[in-house]
């Protein structure tokens, strides 16, 4: 991309900082910011100019559950989590999302419908034979990613149906959504640019069998630092048992 002249840079920075840029335009500036130090400096300048305006907002005491959730998200990973023992905890970020309740019902319905035709594959170590399948879709319900797991082989195959890398400085992280309010389990990072195979540890492989769904969240480079999803959920889908 051609370098911005000073005036357009200043204007772009101002509109970005104010918040008039949305959607792809905003994402584009965020990508530019990774590499364009002059633009970054302009944006920082505007943020500093605007920030005092926030002082005029009437403070509103947030409910205690927000802090409890933050505290849990930033907690160091526990060797043996005992979810039931955590006192009165708020269901995590994911359970918070509006569509999530709806998804849970849909996933349960899909699983019930398909469990009847499940055929357990022979425990052969040789070919990849999917035992579980999920099609992850975006907000517009467009399929984006085909995720197939072979629980016996402890492998997950990922096939982008719509290819594209994560935005600069970000990563796609694949999560297993588990039943009974257990926190999502990370299966690893997904490139998004081509087919990919991820080896699972025994725990993850076993978890696949009882999982209700899978999802991709947008995380910082290198993946979620907390072990729990931190960024927006981009793609989500129910896991169903494969019909072999």
């Amino acid at each position: 991309m051609r370098a911005l002249d000073a005036e357009s840079r200043s204007q772009l920075a101002a509109e970005y900082a104010l918040g008039t840029l949305r959607g792809p335009a905003r994402t584009r500036v965020e990508r530019l910011l990774e590499t364009d130090a002059a633009l970054r400096a302009e944006v920082e300048g505007w943020h500093a100019r605007f920030a005092p305006l926030a002082g005029a907002v009437k403070p509103v005491e947030p409910p205690a559950r927000v802090w409890l959730a933050v505290e849990r998200l930033i907690a160091p990973p526990r060797p043996a989590p005992v979810p039931a023992a955590l006192p009165a905890r708020r269901p995590g970020l994911w359970q918070n999302l509006g569509f999530w309740r709806g998804f849970g019902l849909a996933a349960a319905a899909a699983a019930t419908a398909l469990v009847a035709v499940m055929v357990w594959p022979a425990p052969t170590p040789l070919p990849f034979q999917p035992t579980h399948v999920a099609i992850l879709a975006d907000d517009a319900k467009q399929p984006v990613l085909l995720v197939r797991a072979d629980a016996a082989l402890a492998e997950v195959s990922i096939e982008p149906l719509r290819r594209g890398p994560a935005p600069a400085g970000k990563a796609f992280e694949l999560w297993l959504l588990r039943a009974n309010n257990q926190p999502p389990l990370s299966l690893g990072l997904v490139q998004g640019t081509g087919p990919q195979l991820i080896a699972l540890d025994r725990f993850a492989a076993e978890s696949v069998r009882s999982a209700t769904g899978a999802a991709i969240s947008l995380e910082p480079q290198g993946g979620s630092p907390s072990g729990a999803p931190t960024g927006p959920v981009l793609f989500i889908g129910a896991i169903v048992t494969a019909q072999n």
Partner: peptide, 22 residues
């Protein structure tokens, strides 16, 4: 409290503002 007020102004819904604050 200041940031929650700010998020409420933009998001208008408490549940969304709580999510954003978190």
């Amino acid at each position: 409290p200041q940031l929650f007020g700010l998020a409420l102004g933009i998001l208008k819904r408490r549940d969304w503002a709580e999510e954003a604050l978190q």
